[in-house]
C-alpha cells in the first residue's frame, strides 16, 4: 500500500514536469511556425525578460522591488482585515445579540464585490496608498468574517457540555473551547482572504499606481509590450502561490492536532 502511494507520487511529479515541458514546447512551436508570433513572444524571451528585470529597472524599479511594493500593500490591508474580521466573525458566532446587530449590515454590504469599492475609495482617500489598503481590506474581510463566524457558531456542543461538566465558566469556555475549535475554520477564511487580497492589489494597481505588479502589466498593455505583461503575470502567479504555501505552513504548525496521521 505504502509503496504504491510513493509510486503515484513520483508519477505525479513526472507528469507535472512532462506537462510543463510540453507546454513550453507547444508554446515555442506555436510561436515559431504559426501566425501567433505576431501577438505572442516565445516563452524563452519571457523567461529571459524576467531574468533581466531582476537587475534592470522597469519604470524606475527592478522587478523584485515592484513585487515588494505590492506585497507591502497586501500586508497592511490584509492585516487590517484580520484584526477587524476575526473578532467580528467570532462575535457573530458566539453572541446572538451580536449576530442580530452585525449580521444584517454585513449581509447588506457583502454582495458588493471588493473591487467595486475602488472608485469610491479613490474619491474618499485619493489615489495614494490609503485607498489601496482600504480596497484590499474590504476584499479580504468578507471571507475572513464568514469563516470565523462559521467556526465559532459550529462548535461541537458536546465539547461545550464536557467543558461545563469539568467546571469551565462561560469565559473559560470561550477562551479554551470556542477559540481553539474555530481555528481551522478561521484559517480557511484567512487562506481565501489572502488570495482575494492579492487579486485586489493587482486590480487596484492596474487602475491607479506608479509601481507594483499590477502596474507592470498595465503599462505593458499601454505600450503594447506582451513580453512585459506575460512576465508580470508569471511573477504574480508565483508570488500568489508562495503566499498560499506560506500560510499553509503556518496553519500546519498551529493546527497539527487537526491533521490526521502525518
Amino acid at each position: 500500500m505504502k509503496k504504491k502511494f510513493q509510486n503515484s507520487k513520483t508519477e505525479t511529479v513526472v507528469y507535472f514536469i512532462c506537462s510543463l515541458v510540453g507546454l513550453l514546447i507547444v508554446w515555442q512551436l506555436a510561436v515559431s511556425f504559426t501566425s501567433l508570433q505576431k501577438v505572442m513572444p516565445s516563452p524563452f524571451v519571457v523567461l529571459g525578460f524576467i531574468g533581466q528585470s531582476l537587475t534592470q529597472k522597469i519604470g524606475g524599479k527592478i522587478l523584485p522591488l515592484h513585487i515588494l511594493a505590492s506585497l507591502k500593500r497586501v500586508f497592511v490591508g490584509y492585516f487590517l482585515a484580520c484584526i477587524i474580521g476575526i473578532p467580528l466573525g467570532i462575535l457573530m458566532g458566539c453572541s446572538k445579540t451580536g449576530k442580530a446587530i452585525v449580521k444584517p449590515i454585513f449581509e447588506l454590504l457583502r454582495p458588493i464585490p471588493g473591487l467595486a469599492w475602488i472608485p469610491l475609495a479613490i474619491l474618499w482617500f485619493g489615489i495614494g496608498e490609503t485607498s489601496k489598503y482600504f480596497i484590499i481590506c474590504v476584499s479580504a474581510i468578507v471571507s475572513i468574517i464568514l469563516n470565523a463566524y462559521a467556526g465559532a457558531s459550529q462548535v461541537d456542543q458536546t465539547l461545550v457540555g464536557a467543558a461545563r461538566m469539568l467546571g469551565a465558566k462561560p469565559a473559560q469556555i470561550f477562551l479554551y473551547i470556542t477559540l481553539p475549535a474555530s481555528v481551522p475554520q478561521i484559517f480557511a477564511g484567512l487562506q481565501v482572504g489572502l488570495s482575494s487580497s492579492w487579486m485586489a492589489v493587482i486590480a487596484a494597481e492596474m487602475i491607479r499606481a506608479n509601481e507594483g505588479a499590477g502596474w507592470i502589466i498595465t503599462t505593458g498593455m499601454e505600450s503594447g509590450n506582451t513580453v512585459q505583461i506575460l512576465a508580470g503575470m508569471i511573477s504574480i502567479g508565483l508570488v500568489g502561490l508562495l503566499l498560499a504555501s506560506l500560510l499553509r505552513l503556518i496553519e500546519r504548525g498551529l493546527c497539527s492536532w487537526n491533521i490526521q496521521g502525518r
Binding site: M206, M221, T226
Partner: peptide, 16 residues
C-alpha cells in the same frame, strides 16, 4: 500552473 494567476491579471493581455 495557470491557476495561481488571479483572473484580474489576465485583463491587460486580453485587452491587448
Amino acid at each position: 500552473l495557470i491557476r495561481p494567476i488571479p483572473p484580474v491579471g489576465w485583463i491587460p493581455l486580453m485587452i491587448l
